[in-house]
């Protein structure tokens, strides 16, 4: 059967999922810290961490979806993504956050804060961007 949900929920946000950092260390998803992302990106030759500030949160095409507008990197490029309300983002210095933390906790058993305008999320870009 098919559904019309905008994005399928990935399995790795489930509490207890094993995540491998760039140096090979294994951690549970709920134990990840801001430094883990920063240090992993430092090791990576291709990926770079950017700071993406939440500028707007609007309703999406379907009731369970939201459109989040980010201001990405030093250039403050405007990027919109549509995700399910329970989709967690990692906020610098704070940890996992979603637009509907109750639902995230319900579905993934992952403790979450409420994602708000002004929050600065961890995002990735390619190092080799022109």
């Amino acid at each position: 059967s098919s559904s019309s949900s905008p994005v399928a929920l990935p399995p790795f946000f489930m509490r207890g999922s094993i995540i491998q950092l760039a140096d090979g260390e294994l951690k549970r998803v709920e134990d990840l810290k801001t430094e883990d992302f920063i240090q992993s990106a430092e090791i990576s030759s291709e990926l770079k961490i950017d700071s993406s500030t939440v500028e707007r949160i609007d309703s999406g095409q379907s009731p369970n979806a939201v459109v989040i507008q980010f201001s990405v990197g030093e250039l403050k490029a405007q990027v919109c993504v549509e995700v399910l309300v329970e989709y967690p983002f990692f906020v610098f210095g704070q940890g996992w956050s979603s637009c509907c933390p109750d639902r995230t906790t319900q579905l993934f058993e992952l403790s979450c804060a409420k994602l708000c305008v002004g929050d600065v999320c961890v995002s990735l870009t390619l190092r080799s961007l022109r």
Partner: peptide, 25 residues
């Protein structure tokens, strides 16, 4: 007896959104 199960391991970067600025201007 319990058979050992292979536990999936996910790379760190799959948890982070790839936000690529559109190249305008």
């Amino acid at each position: 007896n319990v058979e050992p199960r292979s536990v999936p391991v996910f790379p760190w970067h799959s948890l982070v959104p790839f936000l690529e600025p559109s190249q305008s201007g």
